[in-house]
Amino acid sequence: MPLNRRFRDVTRIGPVQIGTANDGRGREKHTAACTAPRCGFSADYDSRAAAELAARTHRCPIR
């Protein structure tokens, strides 16, 4: 069954978008995902600060 998340509080830092959603157990998770073509970076974090730090330090391997 695919995961259907409803993101709220979506922001963008460079090519990386950060969104907040609840996981299947009701806990709040923060996702950082790069929107650059062929990059493929995305990760879930427990805190918003960690997701924002990942977005600020992310460097796409594809140039």
Results as ranks from 00 to 15, higher is better:
Pro2Val: 07
Asn4Trp: 13
Asn4Met: 13
Asn4Ile: 14
Arg5Phe: 06
Arg6Ile: 05
Arg6Met: 04
Phe7Thr: 03
Asp9Thr: 15
Val10Gln: 10
Val10Pro: 02
Val10Ile: 13
Thr11Asn: 06
Arg12Tyr: 00
Ile13Arg: 09
Gly14Glu: 06
Pro15Glu: 13
Pro15Lys: 09
Pro15Ser: 15
Gln17Leu: 12
Gln17Ile: 14
Ile18Leu: 05
Gly19Met: 03
Thr20Asp: 07
Thr20Ala: 10
Ala21Lys: 04
Ala21Val: 04
Asn22His: 10
Asn22Val: 00
Gly24Met: 15
Gly24Trp: 12
Arg27Val: 07
Arg27Asp: 11
Glu28Thr: 15
Lys29Val: 14
Lys29Trp: 01
His30Pro: 05
His30Ile: 05
Thr31Ala: 03
Ala33His: 08
Cys34Arg: 04
Thr35Gln: 14
Thr35Ser: 11
Pro37Asp: 14
Cys39Met: 08
Gly40Tyr: 04
Phe41Val: 05
Phe41Lys: 06
Ala43His: 06
Ala43Thr: 11
Asp44Tyr: 10
Asp44Pro: 09
Tyr45Val: 03
Tyr45Met: 04
Asp46Val: 09
Asp46Asn: 11
Ser47Asn: 08
Ser47Lys: 11
Ala49Gly: 04
Ala49Arg: 06
Ala50Val: 05
Ala51Ser: 09
Glu52Tyr: 10
Glu52Ser: 06
Leu53Arg: 13
Leu53Phe: 01
Ala54Gln: 03
Ala55Gln: 08
Ala55His: 12
Arg56Val: 03
Arg56Glu: 07
His58Met: 06
His58Arg: 11
His58Lys: 12
His58Gln: 11
His58Ile: 09
Arg59Leu: 12
Arg59Phe: 03
Arg59Cys: 02
Cys60Asn: 04
Pro61Met: 01
Pro61Leu: 00
Pro61Val: 01
Ile62Leu: 06
Ile62Phe: 06
Ile62Val: 14
Arg63Ser: 12
